[in-house]
Amino acid sequence: MSSPPSTAPTLAYLLLGSNLGNRAALLAAARQQLAATAGDVVAVSGIYETAAWGREDQPAFLNQALAVRTSLRPEALLAACQAAEQHAGRQRLEHWGSRTLDVDVLLFGAEIVDTPTLVVPHPRLPARRFALVPLAEIAGALPHPQLHETIETLLLRCSDSLPVRLWPG
Protein backbone atom coordinates (compact mmCIF):
# COMPACT_ATOMS: atom_id res chain seq x y z
CA MET A 1 0.00 0.00 0.00
CA SER A 2 1.48 3.34 -0.98
CA SER A 3 1.24 6.51 1.07
CA PRO A 4 -1.16 9.14 -0.17
CA PRO A 5 0.52 12.24 -1.55
CA SER A 6 0.67 15.25 0.73
CA THR A 7 -1.59 18.18 -0.11
CA ALA A 8 1.29 20.56 -0.73
CA PRO A 9 4.83 19.76 -1.88
CA THR A 10 7.49 19.57 0.80
CA LEU A 11 11.14 20.51 0.41
CA ALA A 12 13.16 17.49 1.48
CA TYR A 13 16.93 17.21 1.66
CA LEU A 14 18.73 14.01 0.67
CA LEU A 15 22.34 12.90 0.85
CA LEU A 16 23.76 10.67 -1.87
CA GLY A 17 26.90 8.66 -1.23
CA SER A 18 28.96 6.08 -3.12
CA ASN A 19 32.32 4.43 -2.53
CA LEU A 20 32.20 1.48 -4.96
CA GLY A 21 32.33 1.39 -8.75
CA ASN A 22 32.10 4.53 -10.86
CA ARG A 23 31.06 6.74 -7.95
CA ALA A 24 30.30 9.89 -9.98
CA ALA A 25 28.22 7.98 -12.54
CA LEU A 26 26.27 6.29 -9.74
CA LEU A 27 25.47 9.68 -8.17
CA ALA A 28 24.39 11.06 -11.56
CA ALA A 29 22.11 8.07 -12.21
CA ALA A 30 20.61 8.44 -8.72
CA ARG A 31 19.90 12.15 -9.30
CA GLN A 32 18.07 11.28 -12.54
CA GLN A 33 16.10 8.46 -10.98
CA LEU A 34 15.09 10.54 -7.96
CA ALA A 35 14.03 13.40 -10.24
CA ALA A 36 11.75 10.93 -12.03
CA THR A 37 10.35 9.21 -8.93
CA ALA A 38 10.63 11.50 -5.91
CA GLY A 39 9.96 15.03 -7.17
CA ASP A 40 11.65 18.06 -8.65
CA VAL A 41 15.33 18.35 -7.79
CA VAL A 42 15.58 22.08 -7.07
CA ALA A 43 19.13 22.33 -5.69
CA VAL A 44 22.26 20.21 -5.97
CA SER A 45 25.48 20.67 -4.02
CA GLY A 46 28.91 20.11 -5.41
CA ILE A 47 30.34 16.62 -5.10
CA TYR A 48 32.62 16.06 -2.13
CA GLU A 49 35.16 13.30 -1.56
CA THR A 50 34.97 12.21 2.02
CA ALA A 51 36.64 9.73 4.27
CA ALA A 52 34.48 6.78 5.29
CA TRP A 53 32.65 7.37 8.57
CA GLY A 54 31.98 4.60 11.08
CA ARG A 55 34.24 2.10 9.35
CA GLU A 56 37.27 3.99 8.11
CA ASP A 57 39.04 0.97 6.52
CA GLN A 58 37.27 1.34 3.18
CA PRO A 59 37.48 3.49 0.04
CA ALA A 60 36.59 7.18 0.18
CA PHE A 61 33.04 8.24 -0.62
CA LEU A 62 31.68 10.77 -3.03
CA ASN A 63 28.79 12.62 -1.36
CA GLN A 64 26.28 15.13 -2.67
CA ALA A 65 23.23 16.82 -1.16
CA LEU A 66 19.97 17.36 -3.05
CA ALA A 67 16.92 19.46 -2.32
CA VAL A 68 13.81 17.76 -3.70
CA ARG A 69 10.36 19.36 -3.86
CA THR A 70 8.19 16.31 -3.31
CA SER A 71 4.52 15.48 -2.98
CA LEU A 72 5.43 12.14 -1.42
CA ARG A 73 5.02 11.52 2.29
CA PRO A 74 8.22 10.65 4.20
CA GLU A 75 7.86 6.84 4.03
CA ALA A 76 7.12 6.98 0.29
CA LEU A 77 10.17 9.22 -0.22
CA LEU A 78 12.25 6.66 1.68
CA ALA A 79 10.90 3.95 -0.64
CA ALA A 80 11.96 6.02 -3.69
CA CYS A 81 15.44 6.44 -2.16
CA GLN A 82 15.72 2.70 -1.49
CA ALA A 83 14.57 1.94 -5.06
CA ALA A 84 17.42 4.15 -6.35
CA GLU A 85 19.84 2.22 -4.13
CA GLN A 86 18.56 -1.11 -5.47
CA HIS A 87 18.81 0.15 -9.06
CA ALA A 88 22.48 0.93 -8.36
CA GLY A 89 23.10 -2.60 -7.10
CA ARG A 90 23.23 -1.76 -3.40
CA GLN A 91 23.80 -4.78 -1.18
CA ARG A 92 23.39 -4.43 2.57
CA LEU A 93 26.09 -6.81 3.74
CA GLU A 94 27.47 -4.98 6.77
CA HIS A 95 26.58 -1.93 8.83
CA TRP A 96 28.44 1.14 7.53
CA GLY A 97 30.13 -1.02 4.89
CA SER A 98 31.12 -0.09 1.36
CA ARG A 99 28.24 0.54 -1.04
CA THR A 100 27.49 1.45 -4.62
CA LEU A 101 24.85 3.94 -3.46
CA ASP A 102 23.43 5.21 -0.22
CA VAL A 103 20.57 7.72 -0.15
CA ASP A 104 19.64 9.22 3.22
CA VAL A 105 16.65 11.43 3.98
CA LEU A 106 18.27 14.20 6.04
CA LEU A 107 15.33 16.58 6.44
CA PHE A 108 11.69 16.58 5.36
CA GLY A 109 10.52 20.18 5.59
CA ALA A 110 10.16 21.03 9.27
CA GLU A 111 8.58 17.66 10.03
CA ILE A 112 9.81 15.31 12.72
CA VAL A 113 9.33 11.66 11.78
CA ASP A 114 10.02 8.75 14.13
CA THR A 115 8.89 5.37 12.84
CA PRO A 116 10.52 1.94 12.99
CA THR A 117 11.89 2.46 9.46
CA LEU A 118 12.57 6.20 9.27
CA VAL A 119 13.81 8.90 11.63
CA VAL A 120 13.91 12.48 10.32
CA PRO A 121 15.76 14.72 10.88
CA HIS A 122 18.50 12.18 10.37
CA PRO A 123 19.65 11.46 13.93
CA ARG A 124 23.38 11.58 13.16
CA LEU A 125 23.30 14.65 10.90
CA PRO A 126 24.84 17.04 13.49
CA ALA A 127 27.80 14.68 14.00
CA ARG A 128 28.65 14.06 10.34
CA ARG A 129 30.77 16.61 8.51
CA PHE A 130 30.37 14.63 5.25
CA ALA A 131 26.63 15.37 5.37
CA LEU A 132 26.75 18.89 6.80
CA VAL A 133 29.25 20.32 4.28
CA PRO A 134 27.20 19.60 1.13
CA LEU A 135 23.93 20.38 2.93
CA ALA A 136 25.29 23.74 4.12
CA GLU A 137 26.22 24.57 0.53
CA ILE A 138 22.56 24.42 -0.57
CA ALA A 139 20.73 25.16 2.71
CA GLY A 140 23.14 26.75 5.18
CA ALA A 141 20.52 29.10 6.65
CA LEU A 142 17.93 26.34 7.10
CA PRO A 143 17.09 25.68 10.75
CA HIS A 144 17.25 22.12 12.07
CA PRO A 145 13.66 21.32 13.16
CA GLN A 146 14.67 19.89 16.54
CA LEU A 147 17.86 21.72 17.44
CA HIS A 148 16.67 25.13 16.16
CA GLU A 149 20.14 25.99 14.88
CA THR A 150 21.04 26.54 11.25
CA ILE A 151 22.85 23.91 9.25
CA GLU A 152 25.79 26.33 9.00
CA THR A 153 25.92 26.62 12.81
CA LEU A 154 25.77 22.84 13.18
CA LEU A 155 28.68 22.57 10.73
CA LEU A 156 30.73 25.10 12.70
CA ARG A 157 30.10 23.12 15.90
CA CYS A 158 30.62 19.68 14.38
CA SER A 159 33.39 17.74 16.14
CA ASP A 160 33.87 15.28 13.24
CA SER A 161 37.41 15.85 11.96
CA LEU A 162 37.35 13.47 8.96
CA PRO A 163 38.35 15.23 5.73
CA VAL A 164 35.66 16.52 3.34
CA ARG A 165 37.04 18.00 0.10
CA LEU A 166 35.33 19.36 -2.98
CA TRP A 167 35.86 16.71 -5.64
CA PRO A 168 37.67 18.08 -8.70
CA GLY A 169 36.27 15.41 -11.06
Rank of each mutant, 00 (worst) to 15 (best):
Ala29Val: 02
Arg55Val: 11
Leu142Asn: 00
Val119Phe: 01
Ala79Pro: 01
Val113Pro: 05
Asp102Trp: 09
Asp104His: 07
Ser2Gln: 13
Leu132Val: 12
Leu142Trp: 14
Ser98Val: 00
Leu78Met: 12
Leu155Asp: 03
Gly97Phe: 02
Leu125His: 13
Ala67Val: 07
Gly109Lys: 09
Ala29His: 03
Leu20Glu: 13
Val120Ile: 13
Phe61Ile: 01
His95Ile: 07
His87Ala: 15
Gln146Cys: 12
Gly169Arg: 02
Gly89Ala: 12
Ser3Met: 15
Leu156Tyr: 00
Ala136Leu: 11
Arg90Cys: 03
Ala30Lys: 06
Gln91Trp: 03
Ile47Gln: 07
Ile112Pro: 01
Val164Leu: 13
Asp114Ala: 15
Pro123Lys: 15
Ala8Ser: 13
Thr150Glu: 14
Arg23Met: 10
Leu78Gln: 09
Pro126Asn: 09
Ile47Tyr: 02
Pro143Ser: 11
Ala36His: 08
Ala127Ile: 01
Arg124Met: 14
Arg23Ile: 11
Ala35Cys: 08
Leu156Asn: 05
Gln86Asp: 10
Ala83Arg: 05
Ser18Asp: 10
Phe130His: 04
Ser71Asn: 11
Thr7Val: 08
Val113Asp: 10
Ala131Lys: 13
Thr117Met: 02
Leu106His: 01
Thr153Met: 06
Asp102Ile: 09
Leu155Gly: 02
Val42Gln: 00
Val103Asn: 06
Val41Thr: 08
Leu93Phe: 02
Phe61Gly: 01
Ala30Leu: 07
His122Thr: 14
Leu66Gln: 03
Ile112His: 13
Val120Asp: 06
Ala29Ile: 01
Val42Asp: 00
Leu162Gly: 09
Pro59Tyr: 07
Leu106Gln: 01
Leu166Trp: 13
Leu162Thr: 15
Ala83Lys: 03
Trp167Thr: 00
Asp114Leu: 09
Ser98Met: 04
Val42Ala: 04
Thr150Phe: 15
Val120Trp: 07
Pro134Phe: 15
Ser45Gln: 05
Tyr48Thr: 01
Pro5Ser: 14
Leu77Gln: 10
Pro121Arg: 13
Leu154Trp: 03
Asp102Pro: 11
Leu72Phe: 09
Arg73Ser: 14
Leu78Trp: 05
Ala28Pro: 00
Asn63Lys: 06
Trp167Glu: 02
Asp102Lys: 06
Phe61Tyr: 14
Asp114Ile: 04
